[in-house]
Design a protein around this nucleic acid. Sequence first.
DNA 1: ATAATAAGTTAGATTAGACTAACAAATTTA
DNA 2: TAAATTTGTTAGTCTAATCTAACTTATTAT
Lengths: 218, 218
Amino acid sequence: MNSLAEENYLKALLNLSNDKGEVNVNELSKRLEIKMPTVTSMMKRLSAKKLVHYESYKPLRLTEKGKKEAAAIIRKHRLTEMFLVEKMGFGWEQVHDIAEQIEHIQSPEFFAKMDELLGFPKLDPHGSPIPDKNGKMVWKEYSKLSECKAGDTIKLSAVINTSAEFLKFLNSRELSLGLKLKIKSVEPFDNTMVVSYGKRLSETLSHTVCERLLVEKV
Amino acid sequence: MNSLAEENYLKALLNLSNDKGEVNVNELSKRLEIKMPTVTSMMKRLSAKKLVHYESYKPLRLTEKGKKEAAAIIRKHRLTEMFLVEKMGFGWEQVHDIAEQIEHIQSPEFFAKMDELLGFPKLDPHGSPIPDKNGKMVWKEYSKLSECKAGDTIKLSAVINTSAEFLKFLNSRELSLGLKLKIKSVEPFDNTMVVSYGKRLSETLSHTVCERLLVEKV
DNA sequence: ATAATAAGTTAGATTAGACTAACAAATTTA
DNA sequence: TAAATTTGTTAGTCTAATCTAACTTATTAT
Ligand SMILES: [Mn+2]
Ligand SMILES: [Mn+2]
Ligand SMILES: [Mn+2]
Ligand SMILES: [Mn+2]
């Protein structure tokens, strides 16, 4: 069994892995807000447990075992977020911090029950995929809203940033997942977008916001 | 904020407190399955935090602050058990171990939501009172089934032992809280009771079982 | 190419929470 | 009351998880 601290490192490693599956000590240190020497020593521990490939001065990589255990924790996190929103009535901006704790509960029955009550969901409330029981997790092919062009009609499918502040901003504009919107224009100077959706016929969204929204073309 | 370990000590102290509010180091050690020297050193820590009155060789007593914090954890434990049974479909024999972990979640909103969804329950699935937000917890005046006499008609109201084994035994006899039963006879030799309830007209219950069942006279 | 900066490691300290061994105090039994 | 037993404390060790200070390696800028 891995400790709570070990679980948080594993999860962060999987979340930070680039296309090569590599993570730098420094990135991990910043993400977890834990100093680099502490991270180095934990990496040696996880390496001894065959969860991480560690060589001095080289980027970190999860082993297959490490990936699987990390995915299991992310699965618990995202199932929990979905449960909190769908079955307990929380807003999508409220659930991350609670899930951050509940993801460490050791009880396969508890999460199996959540999964069942939710009807075996594939996505969490922020549009991120929920890994299956084997640790398999596939992202659909989304584009960033910021990469779309004037005239495109798209469906809002996921958010990249899941901070409460950003989600509250989206709430204030009635932007939610599944929403269809039309891009009316793109300001060439600062890449600001003017979009219309629902009853809102002309909303202006900054480039910063558009970069954090994942969409599907419709 | 108290650590998970500290919370478990506080909870055990409140659960073990006798009428005088006293607990011995030895009892606490046995309950938590932690050796006595470790308990002593933790008591010094909790004493420094003004949660426990500690003097060498004297029984332990929670301070008012300690009682309040212990009750808050027990409240979270029992609300969780109720939620797991009522809203997630678990059996009363499955919920204790999960609640033992969830009671440490730091999120007033999470437990407030449970409380609300459950309609502000006063009792947990084992018949134990759920402390209110101020830490007040009152036991109704129950008797042990073992103290009742032949001819009494009583209502099963709470269980003293909440081990999965005992609860599974009760399940196997279709014994559940709220059930009315009639005491047909008491064997003087070993205090075994013969009772009737529902479709079961003659069930024999050992003294050991009867001592662990709390009932109300009807 | 060298110097400056950033990233990563080593060494050593600290705190929480557990343990065992040895001893002391309190309680029970003879 | 004296001995035996139980209960509780002290002292010292260990591991997990964190930190700072100092040093080394790698990368970037001049
Ligand atoms: Mn999240
Ligand atoms: Mn976490
Ligand atoms: Mn319980
Ligand atoms: Mn607990």
